[in-house]
Write a protein that binds this DNA or RNA. Structure first.
Lengths: 138, 138
DNA sequence: ATCGGTTACGCTATCCGTAATAATA
DNA sequence: TATTATTACGGATAGCGTAACCGAT
């Protein structure tokens, strides 16, 4: 099965024009990188890179694969960042300032809906509720 | 690091609406699937799926991630197929029908350029050359 | 002789499957 | 009780790093 890491390594080698530089860019050793490229080539059924004495060039197969590899990596990155952005929206603290007498009635109801909410603060007038789950104001 | 497989599993669970059905669709066991989803959620920093008693629903985070996950999977698939298509173009047999007297002069020249070519056939009028390397007609 | 890539090999970590556990209708 | 997801754990696989090797300048 072709993995994201293999595509990432391929792109790095092409961008750097060298296994050695790509390896140090990726913080792995040259053999590890070489092995992954090898695995990708085997799962694809042919050579993707032409190993020249002084540089590395794409074969036609590699040239056909590269843009899709870049796209896959970009999408995977977007998947992570999109999720994390939502996470920041939702996991941010929702600070509520209320009169203590009012919060006595409201907070228990919120706690029932939000899952794992934690209420901090004191009678002195400020409480905060962290909402790690997907609760929205009704 | 987020892997293609994790994204694939997420998409399967959403499409099937159930861990169980997704697991059998993917030919893995339920625990394996559960663990991968868990890993994805941890690397993302929050829940992606809401486990309901009778079904599974996306959280806002999951909803934000899903289209990018689909896109990444599609691109990875395209990367493989694009490369394999080129492979078939290049590794497919190139059949040449010539007069034997003509082929005597031409074939040796082709062999010099193509790398590992194999010539089959006989004097009776048909020869074929397999070209596993990236040779193109001049 | 040096530089760049590959192969060999031992170790660690990851992943999967079986079995047991928990929770909900 | 039946269904569905999670946790625990043993075994297989994959990935990495060190070291040795090859080919070319």
């Amino acid at each position: 099965m072709t993995t994201l890491r293999q595509l990432e390594y391929l792109v790095a080698v092409v961008d750097e024009g060298s296994f050695t530089r790509a390896a140090e860019l990726l913080h792995v050793t040259q053999p590890a990188l070489s092995h992954q490229i090898r695995a990708l080539e085997q799962s694809t059924g042919g050579f993707l890179l032409e190993r020249l004495p002084r540089s590395v060039r794409l074969t036609p197969m590699g040239r056909a694969m590269l843009p899709h590899a870049r796209a896959a990596l970009a999408d995977a990155g977007r998947a992570r960042t999109a999720a994390r952005q939502v996470a920041h929206l939702e996991q941010g603290e929702l600070r509520l300032a209320t009169l203590y007498s009012v919060s006595l009635g409201v907070l228990p109801q919120l706690s029932k809906r939000g899952g794992r909410n934690t209420a901090t603060g004191s009678r002195s007038g400020c409480s905060s509720i962290a909402t790690p789950t997907s609760w929205r104001p009704p």
